[in-house]
Design a protein around this nucleic acid. Structure first.
Length: 426
RNA sequence: GGAGGGAUACCCAAGUCUGGCUGAAGGGAUCGGUCUUGAAAACCGACAGGGGAGUCAAAUCCCGCAGGGGUUCGAAUCCCCUUCCCUCCUCCA
């Protein structure tokens, strides 16, 4: 959500900035009229309430002194009715205004490249050499199924499409990746580990920006009106919802492992095989609360923390600065990290690192105080995958596969795998 | 799931039965001061925050006792709904 006062005085400029990201602005044209209407109604009702307050004091005084107050009471009855009517109208206006604001996307940062589609994303850097295979590299689902470490077929029977069973060394590898990443981020990068709830309420989904616009992307538990989390970003960012943080404690950094659930509405037919697009997947998510003046420097650090995982795993990757059309609804700036997948012969997204500035903090009401006496200010929130585990699993299987169908385990993971160096057929 | 009890400011806590100088007592913590070589103690002082409207800035006004409705001239106080916490019973990994 954007700042209402800022919008009020910079509406023309904001419209320009949002057009830059390809947004249709017609839905927001009512802003100025609604804002004005709200303030008019507020002025009227507040004036009447002020009158009611003072007259009520007067009535109390008269009653104490055993004098007659009936005429005042009759007069106030009418004022009360007017207030009620005005308040209803005010509430309706505020609801419209809020709905408008909740559907308005974030403003891109000036360092975001202009673009019309994902083709206009700008590659910032590459790391690692792409391996030359002297045999034909197989897709990870074939390698893993042959090794009996993933079972998509039975998952289809037990649940449905886009689910999998990890099995044996596969399950252990997945677990090793989770532990390795959490240990790296907590021990080397200063994050506090967290395990969040996997279901959240509507207010939390609204706080981070999944709602109201993208409800069809989430799985919903109808009886409770809870949502299965699409990312740990939701529970972990909302951890500090409606709080005023101590400025001295910033930046606050959390690394959270969780399963993630996405309906993948609108993705039918895309990436139907393998681990790339599942309804349920594991991820270690990095979430940070920072001071506004630090947020862009912190975004660079955060992205570096995610890259470090790939460097240590020896996986080639590149970093993209997402263009204005591919930013998503909530981000002011976003880097995607893409890992090399031999069977696709391309880089595929494995992490997304974003600076939301005050966009989520305003929705979720997360503030901080610089000094004891200071006014609360909005924090800036950042997050990034560090990394998506399932896609990392796929990248390891594909990049480390051997001609005999076995897979070499990257050295940094071996301590988490009981010293095992290679996954082989039984 | 059943039966009770709670939620008041940073923390503790009175007020709720019996609606009106409660625009919320008192204590603790915190901050400032006196005293002291320094500190502690004691004493004095400050301490409802936050949001909104308004303004160049103020003044001023509105909201605010878990959240949301209602009754009333007037609600922390009466009524209804929701959430969360506690105790006991039941069930359960």
């Amino acid at each position: 959500m954007l700042d209402m006062k800022y919008l009020r005085s910079n509406f023309v400029e904001v419209k320009e900035r949002l057009k830059f990201r390809g947004e249709d602005m017609s839905a927001f044209e009512d802003f100025e009229a609604l804002d004005q209407r709200r303030r008019d109604l507020l002025g009227q009702t507040e004036e009447l309430k002020s009158k009611r307050n003072s007259v009520s004091q007067e009535v109390a005084r008269l009653k104490r002194e055993k004098q007659d107050a009936d005429s005042l009471i009759v007069e106030m009855r009418e004022v009360g009715e007017k207030i009620k009517t005005l308040d209803i109208e005010l509430r309706e206006t505020e609801e419209k205004l809020e709905s408008l604001l909740l559907n308005m996307p974030n403003i891109p940062h000036e360092s975001v490249p202009a673009g019309e589609s994902e083709d206009d994303n700008v590659e910032v850097r590459r790391h690692g050499d792409i391996r030359e295979f002297d045999f034909e590299a197989k897709p990870h689902w074939d390698v893993a199924t042959d090794l009996d470490i993933l079972d998509f077929e039975r998952a289809g029977k037990v649940t449905g499409s886009r689910f999998t069973f990890y099995k044996g060394a596969g399950s252990k590898l997945e677990r090793a990746l989770i532990s390795f990443m959490l240990d790296l981020h907590t021990e080397e990068h200063g994050y506090t580990e967290m395990m969040p709830p996997y279901m959240v309420n509507r207010a939390s989904m609204t706080g981070t920006g999944q709602l109201p616009k993208f409800e069809e992307d989430a799985f919903r538990v109808e009886a409770e009106d809870y949502f299965l989390i699409p990312t740990a970003e939701v529970p972990v960012t909302n951890y500090h919802r409606d709080e005023i943080l101590n400025g001295d404690d910033l930046p606050i950094s959390y690394a959270a492992y969780s399963a993630n659930f996405r309906s993948e509405a609108g993705s039918a037919g895309r990436d139907t095989r393998g681990l790339i697009r599942q309804h349920q997947f594991n991820k270690v998510e990095l979430v940070r609360f920072v001071k506004p003046e630090d947020s862009y420097a912190e975004l660079e650090k955060l992205t570096g923390h995610a890259e470090k995982v790939l460097q240590l795993l020896g996986l080639p990757y590149r970093v993209l600065n997402m263009c204005s059309a591919d930013l998503g609804f909530t981000a002011a700036k976003k880097y995607d990290i893409e890992v090399w997948l031999p069977s696709y012969n391309t880089y595929r997204e494995i992490s997304s690192c974003s600076n939301f500035e005050g966009f989520q903090a305003r929705r979720a009401n997360i503030r901080f105080r610089r000094e004891k006496t200071g006014k609360p200010e909005q924090v800036h929130t950042l997050n990034g995958s560090g990394l998506a585990i399932g896609r990392t699993f796929a990248a390891i299987i594909e990049n480390y596969q051997q001609e005999d169908g076995s897979v070499i385990i990257p050295e940094v993971l071996r301590p988490y795998m009981g010293g095992k160096e290679r996954i082989t057929k039984k």
